[in-house]
């Protein structure tokens, strides 16, 4: 029987948008995306996709489903995991899911996973680059009553269990859990592979499976936020940089060292 892996991914504003181009609409409490900057798949979710593909590369019959929850999906963007080599894409796509918070997202993901499952592994990125919550996978594990191992940098599947290296700030832990299990993946896993031309062609031909919250038996209470957003703003920077100049760049370097010594910084 095939090992079934689901990778939860999120479409987010491009986090490499320069800070100078970043702005928020304080009245609407939303981030304003500068024109001409398409969204991306959250970076850590691509690492999670890579982790799933490595499980597949390790051998055996492995089937990878990609699951995204949201609205206003850009098809070329959310198909990226497919073009990397994932097998199918499931979108829970509904206008009511715009601005869904972490607890709502966990509930929708859990319902979709129960409908499309069973899965042996549920992989997520360690956090999303928009709201930086690192909260959804843990909630998902609680709802599904599964163990959760976070910050994976290496995943080894064996029959009925999984062994994970968890990245710590100074080293790593090895943790073992029975499957099914929720695992979050961190960038220490290594770079996510680029889509191949063949992968892109294959992804183009694959139509996503579309689901709605009502098809998943979810009502507005399930989607209600746990906290209310009262204010969203860009903090003011209060530092004024003192630019050190010199006859040339080397000289500027010398002057910088002297200036830092004057300030007792070095």
């Amino acid at each position: 029987m095939a090992i079934r892996v689901v990778v939860c991914v999120k479409q987010v504003p491009d986090p490499d948008t320069p800070a100078s181009a970043f702005s928020v609409d304080e009245a609407a409490k939303v981030v304003v995306t500068p024109p001409g900057t398409p969204p991306v798949v959250n970076g850590f979710d691509l690492h999670a996709t890579e982790a799933a593909l490595r499980v597949k590369d390790a051998g055996g019959d492995v089937e990878i489903t990609v699951l995204a929850v949201g609205s206003d999906f850009v098809m070329d963007v959310v198909k990226r995991p497919l073009s990397m080599g994932a097998d199918e894409l499931v979108l829970v796509d509904d206008p009511s899911l715009a601005g869904l918070d972490a607890s709502g997202t966990a509930r929708v993901l859990a319902a979709a996973i129960e409908k499309q499952g069973p899965f042996d592994l549920i992989l997520c990125g360690r956090q999303a680059s928009d709201w930086d919550n690192a909260h959804v996978p843990l909630g998902l594990a609680e709802i599904l009553n599964l163990p959760c191992i976070t910050f994976a940098r290496k995943i080894d599947m064996s029959d009925g269990s999984v062994r994970v290296e968890r990245a710590l700030t100074d080293g790593y832990q090895v943790v073992e859990a029975p499957t099914p299990c929720v695992i979050t993946v961190t960038n220490e896993l290594g770079e996510a592979r680029y889509p191949t031309l063949r992968g892109i062609m294959a992804a183009t031909r694959k139509a996503p499976t579309n689901l709605t919250p009502s098809e998943l038996g979810l009502n507005s209470d399930d989607l209600a936020p746990a906290l209310d957003l009262e204010r969203l703003f860009v903090p003011e920077s209060d530092r004024n940089v003192e630019v050190i100049e010199g006859d040339d760049e080397e000289d500027a370097g010398r002057r910088l060292a002297l200036r830092l010594r004057e300030e007792n910084l070095i």
Binding site: P18, A19, S20, S237, E249, L256, L258
Partner: peptide, 30 residues
């Protein structure tokens, strides 16, 4: 225009290697 200059107290705009050469020489003297 790099964002780091918005947060920095001191800055040098230039090639890192050339700036480092001068910086390191002076730090060694100091």
């Amino acid at each position: 225009d790099a964002n780091i200059f918005k947060e920095a107290r001191f800055g040098v705009v230039g090639d890192w290697e050339k700036v480092l050469n001068g910086f390191m020489a002076t730090v060694q003297e100091l």
